[in-house]
C-alpha cells in the first residue's frame, strides 16, 4: 500500500516536472518576443510547485529565476502585474536572496524595494509566517 502511494507521488512529481518544462518553453518564447512581464506572470502562475517535492521546487525556481532576471523596468513590471501575484513574487525574491549569488541578489533586492513600496509590509509578513506553502 505504501509502495503504491509512493508511485502515485512519483508520477505526480513527473507530471509537475513536465508542466514546468512546458512552462519554461513558453517563457523562453515570451522573452524572445520582448514580453518579460508576461513571462514573469506565466512563471508565477500555478501553485502546484509549492506542493511538490524539493525537485519540483528547484525546477520551478529555475524557471522563475529566468523570468525575474529578464526584468529590466521594475516599476513598469509592478504596475502591470496584478496584486494577486505580489505574495508569490515576494516568496521567490527571498528564495533568490537566499542563493547568495551576486547578480541574483542585486536583481532581487532591486525588485524587493519596489515591491515593498507597492505591496506593503503585510506582503513580507505573509512570506515570513507561511511555513506550509514554501517555494
Amino acid at each position: 500500500m505504501a509502495k503504491a502511494e509512493r508511485f502515485v507521488e512519483a508520477d505526480n512529481a513527473e507530471a509537475i516536472i513536465t508542466r514546468i518544462e512546458h512552462k519554461s518553453r513558453k517563457i523562453e518564447s515570451l522573452l524572445k518576443q520582448y514580453k518579460p512581464v508576461e513571462a514573469l506572470k506565466t512563471a508565477l502562475e500555478g501553485t502546484y510547485a509549492m506542493t511538490g517535492d524539493e525537485r519540483c521546487k528547484s525546477a520551478h525556481w529555475i524557471v522563475v529565476h529566468r523570468a525575474i532576471m529578464a526584468i529590466k523596468d521594475v516599476d513598469g513590471m509592478l504596475s502591470s502585474l496584478d496584486p494577486e501575484y505580489y505574495d508569490i513574487l515576494m516568496k521567490y525574491l527571498y528564495r533568490g536572496l537566499a542563493t547568495g549569488d551576486r547578480p541574483t541578489c542585486d536583481q532581487c533586492l532591486r525588485i524587493h524595494e519596489k515591491l515593498t513600496e507597492k505591496a506593503g509590509l503585510g506582503c513580507i509578513l505573509r512570506f515570513l509566517t507561511d511555513t506550509v506553502n514554501t517555494v
Binding site: 505574495d87 509590509l121 505573509r126
Partner: peptide, 12 residues
C-alpha cells in the same frame, strides 16, 4: 462555513 480572506498591505 463560507470563509473569506482579505489581505492588506500593513502590519498585522
Amino acid at each position: 462555513p463560507l470563509a473569506q480572506n482579505v489581505v492588506f498591505r500593513d502590519l498585522p
